[in-house]
């Protein structure tokens, strides 16, 4: 496609001056991969800590409950950008990852890992609340039946409650990935070459100030909107299954 020929005559401040796409299209596509990887890996990494936090939150032991509650409160009540900066400069200032380690040849681990860790720690606070809600939504009679058969607390949770809770929380978990696709744009501030960073880079090097952001917005939308609609459809079908 002749991007230069079609859009070349437009103003550099135009919403639709996509003349850069011929040269930078591949770069932006690569950045999309970076964004998706950040989002998916973060939420996947968040699942286990979130489960632990949720179960701690529901514990009878007040200290255990408080520790989990404090973690969730801190990560939900401070900005992600602040958390990311503290983790990047603080934690990974101490633990250095060699610059030469790369993922798929274009993702330097020295930036990717701190980004993923920060997003995962943040996400685990939100996912923990999702799990907590999912566990509480399972009828208490299920736990009582399992315990009355002599099953200890954790096996009752693992074999009876969690399988039912997981089904309840899958849509919310998928929504968390969508949130992370958007939130991960914050990693651009620390030089991670995801979508937002790509837009800034293209704008800086081509002097086309607006259109790179338009195209990135369109990409975010085209990922998230269909995904959220698909989740809604799945949720509707699951509700129909429950009513039976």
């Amino acid at each position: 496609m002749d991007w230069e020929g079609i859009f070349g005559g437009m103003s550099s401040a135009s919403f639709f001056n996509f003349s850069f796409m011929g040269k930078y299209g591949g770069y932006i596509l690569q950045a999309l991969g970076y964004t998706l990887l950040l989002a998916v890996v973060s939420v996947l990494l968040a699942i286990i800590p979130a489960l632990v936090l949720a179960i701690m939150r529901l514990s009878k032991n007040k200290i255990v409950r408080t520790i989990s509650g404090a973690y969730i409160a801190i990560f939900r009540s401070t900005p992600l950008l602040v958390q990311l900066s503290i983790i990047y400069f603080g934690l990974f200032g101490a633990v250095r990852i060699p610059n030469t380690w790369q993922l798929f040849g274009f993702i330097p681990l020295s930036r990717f890992i701190p980004g993923v860790v920060a997003l995962a720690l943040n996400s685990s606070a939100y996912v923990a609340e999702i799990f907590r809600g999912g566990i509480l939504a399972v009828d208490i009679g299920q736990t009582e039946a399992a315990r009355s058969l002599g099953l200890p607390a954790w096996p009752a949770m693992r074999m009876v409650v969690l399988p039912q809770a997981i089904k309840n929380v899958l849509p919310a978990l998928a929504n968390e990935i969508i949130t992370m696709v958007k939130e991960s744009s914050i990693c651009s501030t620390l030089g991670m070459a995801e979508l937002m960073f790509a837009a800034k880079t293209v704008a800086g090097s081509t002097y086309i100030t607006l259109a790179p952001y338009t195209i990135v917005a369109v990409i975010y939308f085209c990922i998230n909107y269909p995904a959220s609609k698909a989740i809604e459809a799945i949720e509707r079908r699951m509700r129909r299954g429950d009513r039976k």
């Binding site: 009828d139 009679g141 299920q142 009582e144 039946a145 399992a146 009355s148 039912q164 089904k167």
Partner: peptide, 13 residues
Amino acid sequence: MGMVFQHFNLFPH
């Protein structure tokens, strides 16, 4: 001690 509940509480899954 076997227990039987008003709402059965069979495991649906």
